[in-house]
Nucleic acid binder design. Structure first.
Lengths: 130, 130
DNA sequence: CGGCATCCTGTTTGATACTG
DNA sequence: CAGTATCAAACAGGATGCCG
């Protein structure tokens, strides 16, 4: 890296810095347990709000709504409303969502693979903390 | 799936159910942004507490300690203390940690790949919410 | 330097109730 | 059925100070 910078080079650096912090922001927003679980289950098939709630399990109505909105905003999930009575709303993964699902799948596989390693490690750790 | 179950089959099912909920618990505990960022940076090289704090950036002393303990407890990170003055503590990824890092790397790649898709989607969404 | 305990604040969350 | 609002409870997180 030299000590001379043209104006355009400075702009490029500024752009990279902006992109980087935004990338980190996206990363932080999406990397949470509910989002991952939702993506994992939605990957299996399109589901209605209530189905998803049952599948995920242990998530409150409010949390599911919040996370679905966040995922929709980021273009990972598509929301389709059928204006019937009672209302019917379906959620599907988009291409970006499917792509992230393969990452989440990787994590599921990891959990299975290292399951006993983790259990053992936990016991050892807890025992050592008396 | 028949309607008759032997005692051992019931036990197996019970075990699977226990393992499943534990797996989900592990999944939920590890799938958070700080843990992912820590794993990502530690994957590059062994680091001291302070280095890691600087690399991750924006994480408080307390959060870093908490997450490192959690990762150590689950056997993803190994903690080495050098009893010098001042103290020197190094953190390294274990095999399980490295394995999870490849998942996190996948997510980093995903973020880069869909970066502009996400930005566009966000703008569209925010505009539609007036 | 790194860890732990404490206090204190603001965010997250669940429960509840009401709307279309 | 799905969404939104509101409220209280619970928790996460930052700041600070002291210890090894």
């Amino acid at each position: 890296m030299g000590t001379k910078h043209g104006a355009s080079e400075l702009l490029v650096n500024a752009d990279l810095a902006r992109a980087d912090s935004l990338a980190r922001e996206i990363f932080s927003e999406v990397a949470n347990k509910w989002a991952f679980l939702i993506i994992e289950f939605l990957g299996q098939r399109t589901m209605r709000f209530g189905e998803l709630r049952d599948e995920v399990g242990g998530i409150s109505h409010k949390m599911l709504t919040q996370n679905l909105r966040m995922l929709e905003r980021n273009g990972l999930v598509e929301r389709t409303v059928y204006p019937t009575i009672p209302p019917r709303v379906e959620y599907t993964l988009t291409g970006a969502g499917e792509a992230l699902r393969s990452v989440v799948d990787g994590m599921c596989g990891w959990t299975q693979r290292y399951f006993s390693h983790i259990e053992t490690s936990r016991h050892r750790f807890d025992a050592s903390q008396l």
